[in-house]
């Protein structure tokens, strides 16, 4: 599903975010990315949906070479990947309903189907009563759940989540984890960057630790690993 070979990413300002990363993630895997702030987790995730292009090395998603990919193919790649952004990236002038529906609008789904699927997905993240609100009228946790809804509505083959529980109380956080768990059960590959120790320890999934831009640890059934 995901294959990185000798990947390095140096930002234009000289920041070395990733250094010689080799990584393989199989189809249907559930993977936690852990590591200190500034380690390079978000940078790594951005490579998957071609928001960033590595300075060196190769990235393959679903055996597609993202380095050689043509500009006009990028939208089609992104439609197979659901992204829960660390900063949500909601459209400010659209309601909750419209924001979630947007992922379907770009692929030209019928109005009726959009309505049905959007309502069902909002129900799933517990925001059915907020569909007419605008992002600025929501709490951080609610905005995050809108972002989750938009990421999963397309039944993506790959779901990448950058701290999807960062702004949530433990109970809502576990609700989201339940959601991700079930989506993964249905065959979607899930990669989740997180600082949530309790969640990582409890789920007993593969854990990849990034430190200073390098893979420091890769365990099949790992724990969070950093002491409090």
């Amino acid at each position: 599903m995901i294959q990185l070979k000798n990947v390095s990413k140096i930002y234009p300002n000289g920041a070395k975010a990733l250094i010689d990363v080799n990584l393989t993630i199989g189809k249907g895997d559930f993977v936690f990315l852990v590591g200190p702030s500034g380690a390079g987790k978000s940078t790594l995730i951005k490579l998957f949906y071609r928001d960033e292009i590595p300075t060196r090395g190769q990235v393959h998603i679903n055996s597609k070479n993202l380095i050689r990919m043509k500009e006009r193919e990028v939208p089609y790649l992104r439609r197979t990947i659901g992204v829960i952004f660390q900063d949500f990236k909601l459209l400010p002038n659209k309601t909750v309903l419209e924001n979630v529906a947007f992922a379907l609008e770009v692929i030209g789904v019928s109005r009726k189907e959009i309505q049905l699927r959007t309502r069902a997905t909002l129900e799933l993240v517990g925001l059915a009563n907020k569909e007419k609100s605008y992002p600025h009228e929501l709490s951080g946790g609610e905005q995050q759940r809108v972002c989750v809804a938009r990421a999963i509505i397309n039944n993506p083959a790959l779901l990448v989540a950058d701290e999807p529980t960062g702004n949530l109380d433990p109970e809502t956080a576990w609700g989201i984890m339940d959601l991700l768990y079930n989506i993964n059960k249905r065959g979607t590959t899930v990669v989740m960057a997180t600082h949530a120790r309790a969640i990582v320890n409890k789920m007993q999934k593969r854990v990849i630790a990034i430190e200073n831009g390098r893979v420091a640890r890769d365990e099949i059934k790992g724990g969070y690993g950093y002491d409090a």
């Binding site: 949906y49 992104r78 992204v83 952004f85 990236k89 909601l90 770009v106 692929i107 938009r150």
Partner: peptide, 8 residues
């Protein structure tokens, strides 16, 4: 944002 969500 639109393009990140897959808009052509």
């Amino acid at each position: 944002i639109m393009k990140l969500v897959g808009a052509s």
